[in-house]
Design a protein around this nucleic acid. Structure first.
Lengths: 180, 180
DNA sequence: CTGAATTTTCAGTAATTACTGAAAATTGTA
DNA sequence: TACAATTTTCAGTAATTACTGAAAATTCAG
């Protein structure tokens, strides 16, 4: 498992960004390596390539599995387990949306709902509830969107994203459409 | 500065979630307190309410300022600076989108571009570049979207989000629209 | 300009998170 | 079933990140 300079710089970058996400440096590096390599890799290869301990790889793999970000492979006659990333980048993106929603949105929505069910003890609570209501409504809409994206095929997702700067126009198109 | 139990539980939750984001616990708590309180607060009040040092508040404020998440106020005859959050939740959301893009997407896009400009040294690099190209294209589209959202008024943003589960239909509407 | 009020900085320390090596558990083949 | 290959777990430690108090810097009223 030899890493080219090009790969090395991308892996380093993912390491730095990894910590800016919910992940950590090692996890970012591991996933970069897996994504950028065509052939599935086993844990020893990852350990060698990134100069991290075998046990660290094991924990990283476990985490990546919990994010549904890797596919498992078996090579006949080889007892080792091999790992790869989906070849379709949209699939990876979709998975990230789903998992981040689970981790970042869902628990918060549930906390918001709890707060909204309580009786406000005073004026401060009334104001607090107003704000929570706003945040709740927004987050719920984002959740609905992400669910929609989750069920969208890669090519439809691609079409949607490519609309890009045309989002505003689409809204107008939609109005026309609805008025008929 | 007395915190109600309802506020306390929301603040705690934001603290926990804060670390799941790029922020940290204290920053999450500080922002929760500011968002949930109607009146602007000064640094001492925040320090008292959250039981953290004055200097920690100072660093937190600095960070929140760098995220453009707080508004500054001055009360005549009082030299202290007071902080509040925008009352429009959409404004906060918009700011978050912009800032996260700056921090999470832009540097990565730039690293991708660098890699794509290099000459592939071998087959591994060729494959790596393919994957980088895919990721680049996706991220660029997300960036365009986020720029679009950034320039969208709160009510248009709201309209867009409310489409929610109708996104698929809109795409169809768009096709009809374009075919004319 | 002076000095009290306020904010910011920063070195030291505390708390948290990440990583390792050794040992335990699991897997699969003979 | 026995055992070698492989993976996972976990206690200890290293590295990183967050927090504090004291001191420095800034602000502004008189």
């Amino acid at each position: 498992m030899i890493i080219t300079p090009m790969q090395q710089s991308l892996i380093s970058h993912f390491g730095e960004m990894g910590s800016r996400w919910g992940l950590n440096r090692t996890l970012g590096q591991m996933y970069a390596l897996i994504v950028l390599t065509e052939e599935p890799l086993n844990a020893d290869q990852i350990s060698d390539a990134l100069l991290i301990s075998r046990s660290n790889v094991s924990m990283g793999i476990k985490e990546l599995k919990s994010w549904n970000l890797i596919k498992l492979h078996h090579i006949p006659g080889d007892r080792k387990e091999y790992f790869s990333a989906p070849k379709d980048i949209w699939e990876i993106a979709r998975t990230l949306i789903i998992e981040r929603r689970k981790r970042e949105l869902d628990p918060t929505l549930s906390t918001f709902r709890d707060a909204l069910l309580q009786d406000p003890a005073n004026e401060a609570d009334k104001y607090t509830q107003q704000r929570v209501q706003d945040m709740h409504d927004l987050m719920e809409m984002v959740t609905i969107w992400s669910t929609e994206l989750q069920n969208m095929s890669s090519d439809k997702l691609s079409t949607l994203l490519k609309l890009g700067s045309g989002v505003g126009k689409i809204l107008d198109a939609k109005e026309k459409f609805l008025k008929k």
